[in-house]
Measured scan of single mutants.
Amino acid sequence: MDVFMKGLSKAKEGVVAAAEKTKQGVAEAAGKTKEGVLYVGSKTKEGVVHGVATVAEKTKEQVTNVGGAVVTGVTAVAQKTVEGAGSIAAATGFVKKDQLGKNEEGAPQEGILEDMPVDPDNEAYEMPSEEGYQDYEPEA
């Protein structure tokens, strides 16, 4: 019985440690998101679009440190934060509304985080759909 109880105690310690790591990862992701939003706020009209992409990228980098179902929630929060940063930029006159959601080359930025393969159960990952990809044929 002692062996059984000791095993359960060790398992509990492992769960607590994993929860603490997840909590730490979420806190880091939130900190990076805040950094990115402050970065966007300090940019001029020309830099705002690039700044919004930076927020998304920093958040995406930190999301990889967070495991399990938390990833889905962090990704949703990050996307809403990026959308909010863009709205703030438009409201303050840093950028025109028609410039939001495009990178410096004018290509749409939507789907940055949505296409990231995420499995809350950590069982399997699927690649994003290939609808947006084109076949590449090298020139002879």
Rank of each mutant, 00 (worst) to 15 (best):
Asp2Trp: 02
Asp2Arg: 05
Val3Ala: 04
Phe4Lys: 00
Phe4Ala: 01
Met5Val: 11
Met5Asp: 00
Lys6Asn: 06
Gly7Ile: 04
Leu8Val: 03
Ser9Pro: 00
Ser9Ala: 03
Lys10Tyr: 07
Lys12Ile: 08
Glu13Cys: 11
Val15Ser: 00
Val16Asp: 02
Ala17Lys: 13
Ala17Asp: 04
Ala19Thr: 03
Ala19Gln: 02
Glu20Asn: 09
Glu20Thr: 10
Glu20Ala: 09
Lys23Arg: 08
Val26Lys: 00
Val26Gln: 00
Ala27Met: 09
Ala29Ser: 03
Ala29Trp: 08
Ala29Met: 06
Ala30Lys: 06
Lys32Gln: 08
Thr33Met: 14
Lys34Gln: 04
Lys34Arg: 14
Gly36Cys: 02
Gly36Val: 11
Tyr39Ser: 10
Tyr39Val: 05
Tyr39Gly: 01
Gly41His: 02
Lys43Gln: 08
Thr44Arg: 02
Lys45Arg: 12
Gly47Gln: 00
Val48Gln: 00
Val48Asp: 00
Val49Arg: 13
His50Asn: 13
His50Ser: 09
His50Gly: 07
His50Thr: 09
Gly51Ser: 12
Gly51Thr: 14
Val52Pro: 01
Val55Asn: 01
Val55Pro: 01
Ala56Lys: 11
Glu57Ser: 02
Glu57Asp: 06
Thr59Asn: 04
Thr59Ser: 08
Thr59Ala: 15
Lys60Thr: 05
Lys60His: 09
Lys60Arg: 12
Glu61Met: 04
Glu61Pro: 05
Gln62Met: 10
Gln62Tyr: 01
Gln62Thr: 10
Val63Trp: 08
Thr64Glu: 02
Thr64Leu: 10
Asn65Val: 15
Val66Gly: 02
Val66Met: 11
Gly67Val: 11
Gly67Arg: 01
Gly68Glu: 03
Gly68Ser: 07
Ala69Gly: 06
Val71Leu: 14
Val71Ser: 04
Gly73Ala: 05
Thr75Ile: 15
Thr75Arg: 07
Thr75Glu: 09
Val77Ile: 03
Ala78Arg: 08
Gln79Lys: 08
Gln79Pro: 02
Lys80Val: 03
Thr81Trp: 11
Val82Asn: 05
Val82Gly: 04
Gly84Met: 08
Ala85Asn: 02
Ser87Lys: 06
Ser87Asn: 01
Ser87Ile: 04
Ile88Gly: 03
Ala91Gln: 08
Ala91Leu: 14
Ala91Trp: 12
Ala91Val: 05
Thr92Val: 08
Thr92Gly: 08
Thr92Tyr: 04
Thr92Lys: 12
Gly93Asp: 06
Gly93Pro: 08
Phe94Asp: 05
Val95Pro: 07
Val95Ser: 13
Lys96Ala: 14
Lys96Trp: 15
Asp98Cys: 11
Asp98Lys: 11
Asp98Ile: 14
Asp98Thr: 07
Gln99Thr: 10
Leu100Trp: 10
Leu100Ala: 07
Lys102Trp: 14
Lys102Arg: 01
Asn103Leu: 07
Glu104Pro: 10
Glu104Cys: 00
Ala107Pro: 09
Ala107Asp: 12
Pro108Ala: 09
Gln109Ala: 12
Gln109Met: 08
Gln109Ser: 05
Gln109Asp: 11
Gln109Phe: 03
Gly111Glu: 13
Ile112Pro: 07
Leu113Val: 03
Glu114Gly: 11
Asp115Lys: 11
Asp115Thr: 11
Met116Trp: 15
Met116Glu: 10
Met116Ser: 09
Met116Leu: 01
Pro117Gly: 06
Pro117Ser: 10
Asp119Cys: 07
Asp119Thr: 10
Asp119Gln: 15
Asp119Met: 03
Pro120Tyr: 14
Pro120Ser: 10
Pro120Ala: 06
Pro120Met: 11
Asp121Lys: 11
Ala124Trp: 09
Ala124Thr: 14
Ala124Pro: 13
Ala124Asn: 08
Ala124Gly: 14
Tyr125Trp: 11
Glu126Gln: 14
Glu126Asp: 13
Glu126Lys: 08
Pro128Thr: 10
Pro128Asn: 12
Ser129Phe: 14
Ser129Arg: 07
Ser129Met: 10
Glu130Phe: 07
Glu130Arg: 02
Glu131Ala: 01
Glu131Thr: 09
Glu131Gly: 02
Gly132Trp: 08
Gly132Gln: 12
Gly132Phe: 10
Tyr133Phe: 11
Tyr133Thr: 09
Tyr133Asn: 14
Tyr133Leu: 11
Gln134Met: 06
Gln134Ser: 10
Asp135Gln: 15
Asp135Pro: 10
Tyr136Ile: 02
Pro138Glu: 10
Pro138Met: 14
Glu139Met: 12
Glu139Pro: 14
Glu139Thr: 03
Glu139Val: 08
Glu139Arg: 06
Ala140Tyr: 08
Ala140Asp: 15
